[in-house]
Structure formats: structure tokens, C-alpha cells
């Protein structure tokens, strides 16, 4: 009943199409988005050239001097936008995977997509000596190939989420051997430049990275507007899903692919920023109790987490900057252990 009262029907294209949204979810998404925006503005003003938030907003509105415009919009904005977009992509990816697998511990980090991206990027750094766009391409290719392998190997009847998890773990273990191999053969200089990428970093991001993540998010939102509603059925489990709708078997691959492509693109743009995809849906579930992790708030949570962690990474050891992934890794790890213990105790892991 509360669900009914909470529901809002939107008719964006006249009478033909309707989207059902939850009011609480809309409010929460807006609030989280505002927070993320505020942190981003704060972050845009910080650096060698300090600006107050009000001045930053003025510059963003087009009112600053030429120097201010250069610093804020051309130097710092790509970093912030990449961070927000990557966070949203990880949040979405984690929420989709966790709901399909009905398992709070599933995320692109655990199932090997990030390891694939790392391997691809490392290959570019150590074998071809590449950087910049080549690095992004390498990471992207690695992540997409890994994602494809996981999806193909995990498909099949009657195994649902568990097979996805186990296949991913196996592939991740294999890739970690391959990564060790590349690191042993690499020169010291290459290892150093690889280390920062392998942690996940937002430093030196530009138009390329912004474009990648923007296009990905737009495509993912389009797919999710069409297929996202099936998540409610899929998370009931394979048997119920195929009883209720004949199409469950066809929709699951679409959604899994969307989730891993989101993670792959985000990783290509910013490196494997650990634990965001895992933690964001869990925070969302606790903010909106009584239901599964909703997608839009999870995306907003992810964006807030990444942009805030990046700010912390810049400030903690200033003037030395840590890669953002170091912060999310150290903060996210205890959350992971807590989730694991809790999920096992209440029997959610299977």
C-alpha cells in the first residue's frame, strides 16, 4: 500500500509510454545528486589556484576571467565530470549485478571485469609503451573481452547469479597471474606508471575520458528505461521469473551486458576504482529501506562516493596526491567484510 502511495506515473511521450517511479527514490536521487554537485564545486575550487565555491559557480556560469576559466573549466572540470560519471556508472553496474545475482557481494571488482581492464591497460603500458588514448583503449578492450568471456561462460539454464559469480572469480584469478607476469617482465619505470593506473585515478583526465563516460551513461540509461523494469521479476529467481514472464531468459543477458559494459567503460576512463560498485547499492538500500537497491539513487550514490573520495585523496597527504582508488579501497574493504559476514549469517549468499 505504501508502495502504491509512493508511486508516480510519468507519461513523457503522451499516452503510449509510461514510467513508474517512486517519489522517495526521486527525492533521494535529487538530494544525493545535489551533494555530489556541491562536492564537485568544492573540488573545482581547490588546488594551486584557490577559488571560493561562490567564485567557482560564477566561473562555471561564464562570468570569470580568462585565467579562472582556463583553470576551472579546462583544467579541473574534466576531472570532476569524469569522477561523477565514473561513479554513477559503477553505482549502476553494481546495483544491476547485485539485483540479478540476488547477492550483495557481487560487483565488477569481485567478478573480474576490473582485472580484465587492468590487464589490457598494463599490456599497453609494458609491451607497447603507450599512454593516454592508447591506455584507455587497452583498458576498454581488456574489460570488454573479459566481460564477454564472463557473460558467455556464465550463461546457461538454472544457475542464475551464482554461476556468474564463480565464473568471474575464476577469470579474475587467471588474469591476476597474467598481470603478475607483465609486472615481472616490465621495466621499473613502466611499473611505476602502471601502479597509479591499476589503482584507479582521476588525475590528468580530459575530453576523451568525459566523452567515453558520457556516451556510455547515455546508452545505459536508454537500455535501462526499456529493460530496467524486468529487474523486479529477475531478482525473484530463475524459476519464478520464467513462470511470470516468458522473456526473463532473454532479458537477463541484456541487463548483465549493460552492467559489465558500464563497469568496463568506467574502468577504461578512470582505472579500476575499487569497491564503489559494491558499496553504492548497499548504501542506497539502507537509505531506502524495504526494497531492492534502486538504480537512480545507486548511480547518484556512486557519483558522490567517487567525487568525495577523490577530494579526500587530494587533501589527505597534500601536496602529494593519492590515486582515488587508494581511498575507496581502504574505506571500502571493511564494508565488504561486514557485508560478507552479515550476508552469510542471514543466509543470503547461498
Amino acid at each position: 500500500m505504501t508502495a502504491r502511495r509512493d508511486t508516480l506515473l510519468l507519461h513523457p511521450a503522451g499516452r503510449g509510454v509510461a514510467f513508474r517511479v517512486s517519489k522517495r527514490s526521486v527525492v533521494l536521487t535529487a538530494a544525493l545528486g545535489l551533494c555530489a554537485g556541491a562536492v564537485a564545486v568544492l573540488s573545482l575550487g581547490l588546488g594551486e589556484f584557490d577559488l571560493r565555491p561562490a567564485d567557482t559557480l560564477r566561473v562555471l556560469g561564464g562570468g570569470g576571467t580568462l585565467i579562472e576559466y582556463d583553470v576551472v573549466v579546462r583544467d579541473r572540470l574534466p576531472r570532476a565530470v569524469t569522477g561523477l560519471g565514473v561513479g554513477a556508472a559503477f553505482g549502476l553496474s553494481g546495483a544491476i549485478l547485485q539485483r540479478i545475482a540476488a547477492n550483495p557481494l557481487v560487483s565488477p571488482d569481485v567478478i573480474g571485469v576490473n582485472a580484465g581492464a587492468s590487464f589490457g591497460a598494463l599490456l599497453v603500458i609494458t609491451v607497447f609503451g603507450g599512454a593516454g588514448a592508447a591506455l584507455v583503449l587497452g583498458g576498454l578492450a581488456g574489460a570488454l573481452l573479459t566481460a564477454a568471456a564472463i557473460v558467455v561462460l556464465a550463461l546457461g539454464h538454472g544457475h542464475g547469479g551464482y554461476r556468474l559469480v564463480l565464473v568471474g572469480i575464476g577469470i579474475a584469478a587467471m588474469l591476476s597471474s597474467a598481470i603478475s607476469f607483465l609486472l615481472v617482465r616490465a621495466e621499473y619505470r613502466q611499473v611505476l606508471s602502471a601502479a597509479s593506473w591499476l589503482t584507479g585515478s582521476l588525475a590528468n583526465r580530459g575530453a576523451l575520458h568525459v566523452t567515453i563516460i558520457a556516451v556510455t551513461l547515455a546508452a545505459a540509461v536508454a537500455v535501462l528505461l526499456v529493460f530496467g523494469r524486468h529487474l523486479r521479476v529477475l531478482e525473484l529467481g530463475d524459476d519464478v521469473a520464467s513462470t511470470l514472464t516468458g522473456g526473463a531468459g532473454r532479458v537477463r543477458p541484456v541487463l548483465i551486458t549493460t552492467a559489465v559494459v558500464l563497469a568496463a567503460m568506467a574502468t577504461a576512463a578512470a582505472g579500476p576504482i575499487g569497491f564503489v560498485a559494491l558499496v553504492a547499492p548497499q548504501i542506497t538500500r539502507r537509505l531506502l529501506p524495504g526494497g531492492p537497491a534502486r538504480l537512480a539513487p545507486a548511480a547518484a550514490t556512486g557519483a558522490l562516493l567517487v567525487i568525495a573520495a577523490d577530494l579526500a585523496a587530494r587533501l589527505l597527504f597534500a601536496p602529494t596526491e593519492l590515486p582515488v582508488g587508494a581511498v575507496t579501497g581502504v574505506l571500502g574493504a571493511p564494508v565488504l567484510l561486514y557485508l560478507l559476514a552479515r550476508a552469510n549469517r542471514i543466509g543470503h549468499t547461498g
Binding site: L105, V110, I169, F275, G329, G332, L337, T349
Partner: peptide, 20 residues
């Protein structure tokens, strides 16, 4: 599944600490 997940989760966590 529980053991494999616990192992993968611990590896991910410990791996990120190692990275730092």
C-alpha cells in the same frame, strides 16, 4: 559459493591494501 566469495572478497580487500 560462500567460501569462494569469501576468498574473492578477501583477495580484493587484501589486494587493495597491498596496492596502497
Amino acid at each position: 559459493v560462500k567460501l569462494a566469495l569469501a576468498g574473492a572478497a578477501l583477495s580484493a580487500m587484501v589486494g587493495s591494501m597491498t596496492t596502497v
